[in-house]
Simulated scan of single mutants.
Amino acid sequence: MTLEEAYERLHRTGPEFEGWLSNHGPMAVESMVRHGYDREVHRWLDSYIARLDELPRATSPIGAGDWRAALGDPHRLGDWLTFFDRELGEQPWRAVLETWWPRLLPGIAAGATHGVIRTGHAVHALSRQQDETRLAELGQALGYWAARWQAIAGFGAPSGTAGPGLALAGVPRVPDQSMGINHRLGQLAEIAGWGSSLAVLRPAADAEQARTRLTELADAATLRYVTHAHGSPVMLVHTATAPTAVLRVLPALPAEVWGASLDAAWAASAAVTAAYAPAEAASRRDLPVVPGSAEEVFDLAVRHGDEHVIKLADTALDVHHRTGDPDALAAVVRAVTLIEPFPS
């Protein structure tokens, strides 16, 4: 019941705080519980919740016929949370997801990709067990995504021949690497080579290929973090966690939307790479040594306490399990060395 207790505490808070920062609490605690760190959850939350804002209130109901006008309007956040709470009370959660996933997917940049990442964690939890608090968490995730819905310039189906690792390496950097993510993403349409870099990925011929390619993307982004994290240790985490979130949702979706899901995840990972990647990779001589097993590395992330490190560790353990590549674990150690620990 630890996850349910944590969700109940967190659902009294909003999806954002300090104006625009994403509430990572639900994502971090879901990762911690799934990896056996139930006893650490409430202690971690005691510190984390103090930062958060109250749950926003609804002011104007969103109806079935006028949702498009409210999409991407952060002032309607409370309205969107209420909308999805109602939807999930009236329909099975998979039916709600099937309807709204294609509507939300083109706006995958929402909240610096946190809309889709929180949805991925919520679906992962619901797929193991269904109850009221887990349904409420999916509603909060979808509502946040809808309110912050944000498209990526040049978004479309790729048509090239490159695998995800090579494709990520060819993404151009935005010229002005200052200010926040919206300022950076706003430059994408004007970058020479941006559209062609999105197109270069090898497309999937069917649903199973889409899942395979999405797995390869999550793997490549995680391994690339080791040598490129210094560009922005926090933001570049999302190049890996966003496609991982999409990958985890696939089993709950019809196979016919898996290809579009790959395309959106690729656009998100490429966009964050363009926005924050450093000019040069770090030398392998300067990289950290992995201190132990995968379980010890996740323990290191929990003791560090930063929510991004915990989420990256959750993804990295999946990558390490699939590939056996020690760089997957090194990515977590790299994040620990670069990101300030969260005070407990």
Rank of each mutant, 00 (worst) to 15 (best):
A255C: 09
H304F: 15
I310C: 13
R94Q: 13
A330H: 02
L262R: 10
R202F: 00
D46A: 08
N23R: 13
A112T: 08
G143L: 03
A252F: 14
P74M: 07
E295I: 14
V336H: 13
E137L: 12
A167F: 01
G165L: 01
D46V: 08
W44Q: 10
L45Y: 03
R12T: 14
Q187F: 03
M235W: 09
K311W: 03
T273M: 12
A330M: 14
T161S: 09
W100S: 01
A28D: 07
E5W: 11
T161H: 05
R9L: 13
A136K: 11
A275S: 15
P254C: 09
G180K: 09
L71Q: 10
G107C: 02
L10C: 01
V302P: 02
L188T: 04
D53C: 01
V116A: 15
E16C: 07
W80A: 02
P254G: 11
S232R: 11
R57Y: 03
P172D: 03
A169F: 00
T119P: 06
D53I: 12
H24K: 07
H321Y: 10
V332I: 07
G63W: 07
G25K: 07
R224F: 00
Q150I: 05
L126W: 14
E90C: 11
V309M: 07
V200I: 14
A245L: 02
A264I: 09
S269Q: 12
T119Q: 04
H124Y: 03
V116G: 06
A50F: 00
W93G: 05
A109V: 05
L247V: 06
E295M: 10
A229Q: 05
L329N: 09
P254L: 13
H228R: 13
A157P: 06
P203D: 14
A210N: 08
H24W: 11
A151M: 06
A157V: 04
S261E: 07
L52Q: 01
K311V: 12
E40C: 13
T323C: 00
H124L: 14
R118W: 09
L126P: 01
I191T: 08
G170S: 04
F83H: 15
R86L: 07
H183P: 01
E340G: 01
V226I: 02
Q209T: 15
A192D: 07
W67H: 05
V309F: 12
A6Q: 10
A281S: 09
P233R: 04
R148M: 06
M179D: 12
I108L: 11
G170P: 02
A330I: 05
E256I: 05
H183V: 02
G180M: 03
D286R: 06
A153G: 11
A270L: 12
P74F: 02
L71A: 03
H11I: 09
V272Y: 12
L135E: 10
A294C: 04
G231A: 15
S127L: 10
